[in-house]
Design a protein around this nucleic acid. Structure first.
Lengths: 219, 219
DNA sequence: TTGACTGTCGACCGATCGGTCGGTAATCGT
DNA sequence: ACGATTACCGACCGATCGGTCGACAGTCAA
């Protein structure tokens, strides 16, 4: 038990870390493996000892992020409560996760674009697909539950999920444009907190009527 | 006036068209110029006669899309009406545009990611920046106007713009995932219409309370 | 001590990358 | 009729791409 994997940072993890940064910034095709190798402190040949191809490495990077999301979402929902409370906690957890690291949202959004062509037959890629579906199915169930209980307006589930992704993942993936619109980085703790407030307010009241509506609620 | 540019499809346009498709699908780094040349029916060397570099071509492609958006948005707002009507028309116009061609939203979203590094000193790239800022500034003014008139809840302008982009551009850029969630392509006329309804409903009522709220409004 | 296994590496592969160059055919204004 | 300009092309460039291969050091079980 001298070198248990608890503390030790394996070379595989160093590669994944470096690759995550690079893929998030420049995309699958925009990153060379020599670059990844250098950032990970290895030679290019050594990468192929840990991953059998570039697409395999990419899938592993995306899969790791999805695993984190899956874990934290599941944990957030397991805490119980009525649907509205759980949706709130679900949103908080998601936004916190995306706000932790600028690479996360970028990579997730990019993976939507890229994997349309990345064939998708390897084990790692199937895992990505399965985890994505699992996370989204859970969120869909949550919405359905809220609607059935009358806490949520009856809306199209698919479109609503798309809206939630757009409101969260896009925001933290928007890079310089988002920063310009906000006046400061999306990833400062104050802006992360504000994003939660704005998204929740939008989901509660829409954009309508400061005057005609009750606006005495605050977070 | 034998060959006025009204009807004629210039080779430059053919290149832009081909490049738009390809860049939208695989991104800046993922597309080779030989591929663009072939799709446009030209040799690679000829590309450099019309565009001085790859980044110049890319900027021209993005710029052309932004010009279309700018034109149609401006026209939509010029028709007048109270703020809520104009916001509605602004949304309709945007969603119609994004729904017309799957490349549009993809390319716009991709350009957010890519241009963080694409230096941005050329004339074409400055034009892209300027047009983006103009479109967003117009939309921001529209929101401010609606809030000042009391038609809209007082919300953070930057975050609200981000939300609107997320609700529209992301949706049409989401590719296979969005298709899976919807059960059919985002670009069928029925799903485009539905997206308008769902976004507007979200902006009007939020997600809250089918039971406690009035739900007798329909589009 | 040995043989198997793991991790790392440099050298190398064919292919493709963005881009240059010199030349040719057509079209233009004068 | 003619020089200039426009559009296009094939041949070519150095660099980099993803990926392979054989060698070498370290660890561990037998």
């Amino acid at each position: 038990m001298a070198h248990a994997q608890a503390v030790e940072v394996t070379p595989r993890d160093k590669i994944l870390e470096a690759a995550e940064h690079l893929f998030a910034r420049r995309g699958f095709a925009g990153v060379g493996l020599s670059e990844v190798a250098e950032a990970a402190g290895l030679s290019k040949s050594s990468l192929f000892h840990h991953f059998k191809s570039k697409v395999d490495l990419y899938a592993a990077v995306v899969g790791r992020i999805l695993d984190h999301i899956d874990l934290r979402m599941t944990r957030a929902l397991a805490a119980g409560g009525d649907p509205l409370t759980r949706i709130d906690r679900w949103l908080d957890t998601l936004i916190d996760f995306l706000g932790e690291n600028p690479s996360h949202a970028r990579l997730l959004l990019r993976s939507l674009f890229e994997d349309d062509e990345l064939t998708g037959t390897s084990e790692e890629e199937q895992h990505v697909d399965a985890t994505t579906k699992r996370v989204l199915a859970t969120a869909g169930d949550l919405l359905r539950e809220g609607m059935a209980a009358g806490h949520l307006r009856a809306a199209n589930i698919g479109h609503t999920l798309q809206s939630l992704i757009g409101l969260t993942v896009y925001h933290f993936a928007s890079g310089q444009l988002g920063e310009d619109l906000l006046g400061r980085s999306q990833f400062t703790s104050i802006e992360i907190k504000r994003r939660k407030q704005e998204v929740k307010a939008l989901l509660r009241h829409g954009l309508a009527g400061g005057r005609a509506h009750s606006d005495h609620e605050e977070d």
